[in-house]
Design a protein around this nucleic acid. Sequence first.
RNA 1: CGGGGAGUAGCGCAGUCUGGUAGCGCACCGCGUUUGGGACGCGGGGGUCGCAGGUUCAAAUCCUGUCUCCCCGACCA
Length: 415
Amino acid sequence: MRYSKSFIKTSHQAPKDAETASHRLLARGGFIYPLGAGFYSLLPMGFRVYQKIYDIITEELNRIGVEDMIMPVVHPARVWKETKRFFEVGPELWKIKNRFKEDFVLAMTHEEVITDAAKPIISSYKDLPKLVGHIQTKVRDEARARGGLLRTKEFTMQDAYSFDRDEEALDKSYQKFIKAYNNIFERVGIETIMIESDVGAMGGLGANEFMMIAKNGEDKIVVCKKCWHAVNADVLGISRESNAIRKGTKCPKCRSTNLTFKRGIEVGNIFKLGTKYSIPQKLFYTDERNKEHPVIMGSYGIGLERLLASVVEASHDKDGIIWPTSIAPYRVYLLGIDKKSAADKTYQQLTKAGVEVFYDDRDATAGEKFADADLLGIPYRATVSAKTKGKIELKKRGSKQVKLVTTSELARRIK
RNA sequence: CGGGGAGUAGCGCAGUCUGGUAGCGCACCGCGUUUGGGACGCGGGGGUCGCAGGUUCAAAUCCUGUCUCCCCGACCA
């Protein structure tokens, strides 16, 4: 893509109130644009990162046997009334009415809908286990959106669901997801820890969260320094760190009082739902002895935009974003300084070689182009100028070292 | 929902206290000079000052109402 043709405009200044690094840098770099509080467009540069994250998540879940589908965003209230969540969830559940004054719900999550869809499919123990999921918009009337993409009212989630015959089988499905989630977070370039969490409005037998440790994270995490068990502070009913210490709060696993407190961003959440949905929605299967049982379910979710922003929180410097290669919008940022025709030729060669290249073909100063290359955080920068004498200067984002290479070497090196 | 802050050009802001008909930086357009870390000169275009009422000869400025956005907290599948 040529800069001059791209739907992009970077800015020297961040939106005045943006305080988190990801919010500032994603806005400055032209990755996102706010429509209103908690509603963001992903501009082309941001959407490319989103698509890479999308592909990684899909790939890792397919690997454990999750099959892809897609469910609606607008739900007739019927299914939400079956589980009573229509009445119990609270104002976060966004309710709407149609022209006939009938109740509908905007998808906050999809347990009811998937359970409904499973009814004609699952009726025997022979139909189990099953793993299925989708990547779809979620809408939540959050009391307060914050931190750019970190908490929005509309976002995309990969949510998957497991159907098993008993708790032992659920445990196996659950373990598969833990593995897949760890792979996903590693591949997008962040470090996470899995912690014990509250089941909240999801209900069920238990839940875990995947947390990226971050100073400005919204969630409080308690880590036991003896056994390294980690728990969301909500689970222990901890409001203030000082109170917890004074009261002698113990690790729920080893009872040690040697606790440490961290903050984190929740990038994934998994739930053992049990029969919370299968019983009220009547999802039953028949076993070998012709006896009926409720299906044991699990649900698993990753917010794509939040994950994208979390990567920025974890990987940036004063000049801009440093995208991990796995999810960078482009592989190389190409710019010419005074040899435009040579840069044009390099662009064509790289494109032909199948390299994802963002070509800064603007009539701008070297400084401006370098600054944008840093801000956008594309892993490699390739400079063509009189100084490079027919070769290309290659630099990795975040490093100071430069190398002179030929075009074919370049294509090979950055693959 | 409680507390705090803010709405003036695409973005960042000044002007509001003390009313006199809107300005700066970035961005944008034209010409020229520049070109290895966000260049420079000259010349331009763009704003019913969030919205609605009111006071006044006169309102960005004063009064009333209302909408929106941000931050902290509560909340958070």
